[in-house]
Amino acid sequence: MSGPGAGGSGAGRVPSRWEELVAENPGHSRWYVERFRAMAAQGQDTVGEARLIDAMVSRGARILDAGCGPGRIGGYLHRAGHTVVGVDVDPVLIAAAEEDHPGPIWLVGDLAELDLPGRGIAAEFEAIVCAGNVMTFVAPSTRVTVLRNFAAHLAPAGRAVIGFGAGRDYEFGRFLDDAREAGLVPQLLLSTWDLRPFSEDAEFLVAVLGRA
């Protein structure tokens, strides 16, 4: 999430929790890349989130993979026939996405400073997917800003699908309040990416949000 247009790295930018984690352990990004490469090589399902997004949109949709990591979701969606832009704060993860999943536009950038039109990329996406607990890795002070940026990059009838687990210092109720403040309203709440209904004791949230 730190590059011109996708999100600048100007003075005063608040580092994300992911950047703090990598600063403490410089090998973390490479471990993360190799973890998913190994899972894919073993035949494990690493694209369940992408299948849900694919089912929600028409063929050839424009999709933003927000916090795309090494590209497992955006890569699948590109191969399924969609136009994909992926943004992540970590240049190591973006480099892996470019290597393993050529085709989408992969950008290093800060979701808290997301401005794709500033980089010549149309803002209106039919879907934004934010998986992999990304919302718990952004700086807490930027959460509403990140969500507001999602709303600004959605087509009028577009939907943002955000998933993260409990116990990560971001209560589900607080997230939904932040989303509403940012101009996003819940259309559907699930407890898994395979469409199990959400309940008050759920350990995971998948929120399908639309513009207010």
Rank of each mutant, 00 (worst) to 15 (best):
R72T: 11
G118H: 06
V146Q: 14
E203N: 06
A212I: 11
G67E: 04
G71S: 08
V161H: 05
D45V: 14
L93Q: 15
V144P: 00
T136H: 06
P186L: 10
H153L: 04
E49Q: 12
G81F: 07
P197A: 06
D110T: 00
V57H: 04
D65N: 00
Y76G: 07
A38I: 02
L116I: 03
L52S: 00
F36W: 12
R148S: 11
A95M: 03
A127K: 14
F150M: 14
G10E: 10
V92F: 02
A157F: 06
R159F: 06
F175E: 02
H101C: 03
V57E: 06
P197L: 10
D194R: 08
P104T: 01
W18H: 06
V108W: 12
C68Y: 04
H101L: 00
A160C: 07
E126A: 11
A155R: 09
M56Q: 15
N149E: 01
D110I: 00
A112T: 00
V146L: 15
D169L: 10
G165F: 14
T192G: 00
P104C: 01
R37Y: 03
A55E: 08
L21C: 02
G173Y: 03
R37F: 02
W106H: 09
R35T: 13
L64E: 03
W106K: 04
T145R: 10
A122P: 07
L116C: 02
P70R: 04
R37E: 13
A151N: 03
L195Y: 03
S191I: 08
R13Y: 06
E19L: 08
R180P: 05
L205D: 03
D88S: 07
A202S: 14
E171I: 01
G60Y: 02
P102S: 05
E34Q: 10
L147Q: 12
F150G: 11
A166N: 09
G167H: 14
A202Q: 07
T192E: 00
A139N: 10
C130P: 06
V108R: 09
R174V: 15
A179F: 12
G183N: 14
R180Q: 11
G210I: 09
L114I: 04
D45L: 14
P4C: 03
A139Q: 05
T83R: 14
F150T: 08
A112Y: 00
V134N: 02
T83M: 12
W18P: 03
A55M: 03
V92Q: 07
I121W: 11
G12A: 08
G167E: 10
P26M: 02
P186W: 06
L205Y: 06
I63E: 01
H78T: 07
S141V: 12
A95D: 14
R62I: 01
R13E: 08
A40S: 12
A112E: 00
F204E: 12
F198R: 05
E20M: 09
E19C: 03
I162L: 07
I53H: 07
A152H: 10
R51Y: 05
R30K: 10
R51E: 11
W193P: 02
A11Y: 05
V84D: 12
E34D: 15
N149P: 05
A38E: 15
E181G: 00
N25W: 14
R119V: 04
P140A: 09
R119F: 10
G120L: 08
M56A: 11
L209D: 02
A127G: 01
G81S: 07
V144C: 00
E181V: 10
G75A: 10
D115E: 09
